[in-house]
């Protein structure tokens, strides 16, 4: 009996943890991305994270949209117009459809994942442009794990974690699906820190992010995210190190927050 009660308790807490308590439709976060150039940080792009409600005849979903746009002065050198979106269950943040539509300095790529959670697979569609400007498509069915999510819904899922219950050093793994491949993202809670941001002085949870077995985001606490230590867990500041340099992401404005 005791064991059954324990299992019920665990299931209840798992279900409870999965509930979205952080993200609401109508939220808009604007960031400024800067890149380290000869020791000086230069603003290169504006990153927006927006949420909105999408209604179909059968259900209502939450659209999580992230876009990156280079500033005008960089457009002649390297124009970036990236669009990432994920359509998720508003209650659990489980993704149903993911789209990545990127245009980076003449390079164009479109990726779409249509999730089938019951069968644990995704129907992926890749669209690319040839050198002569013609587009070609590739359809694939990819088997995924039960908890695999795209990068956008994972980003929002991190915000939905119960960090206040974690102690420094605790970490959680997320399985990310990127370019039809699964990768493990490790999120480690470091400590609480108060930092100055454009939206005021905020007490924040400092998290370290790393990709397992990848050179892109190495795991020596060099990629950090600061989330406000309140119910909204707004990402206000991020520091990243990639093989070709380092950069920062600073919040410019935050509107439409849930709490």
């Amino acid at each position: 009996m005791k064991h059954y009660l324990f299992v019920i308790f665990i299931l209840f807490t798992v279900k409870y943890h999965a509930q979205n308590t952080t993200i609401a439709a109508g939220e808009k976060l604007v960031f400024s991305a800067s890149y380290n150039m000869s020791g000086l940080l230069t603003n290169i792009a504006e990153v927006k994270m927006e949420t909105s409600e999408v209604k179909t005849s059968k259900s209502t979903l939450l659209r999580l949209k992230c876009s990156a746009t280079t500033y005008k002065k960089w457009d002649d050198f390297f124009k970036i117009r990236d669009l990432y979106e994920s359509y998720v269950n508003p209650k659990t943040l489980t993704p149903y459809l993911y789209k990545r539509d990127i245009s980076e300095g003449g390079y164009y790529k479109f990726m779409q994942y249509k999730y089938s959670h019951k069968d644990k697979l995704i129907r992926s569609l890749k669209r690319k442009k040839n050198k002569d400007g013609k587009t070609w498509e590739e359809n694939k069915i990819v088997k995924i794990g039960a908890s695999s999510k795209d990068i956008i819904s994972t980003l929002y899922a991190i915000r939905n974690l119960d960090i206040h219950k974690a102690s420094p050093g605790d970490q959680q793994e997320f399985t990310i699906l990127f370019d039809n491949k699964e990768t493990t993202l490790i999120v480690k809670y470091i400590n609480k820190e108060t930092i100055d941001t454009k939206i005021g002085r905020k007490a924040c949870y400092k998290l370290a992010v790393s990709l397992k077995g990848s050179d892109l985001l190495k795991g020596n606490n060099s990629n950090l995210i600061w989330l406000t230590a309140d119910k909204n867990k707004v990402p206000v500041y991020a520091k990243f190190k990639i093989p070709v340099g380092s950069g920062e992401l600073k919040i410019s404005s935050a509107t439409g927050l849930k709490n």
């Binding site: 400024s32 603003n43 504006e46 746009t69 500033y71 005008k72 002065k73 124009k79 669009l83």
Partner: peptide, 9 residues
């Protein structure tokens, strides 16, 4: 810093 043309996006 000013964002360029986003019409296409």
């Amino acid at each position: 810093p000013e964002v360029g043309n986003v019409e296409q996006l």
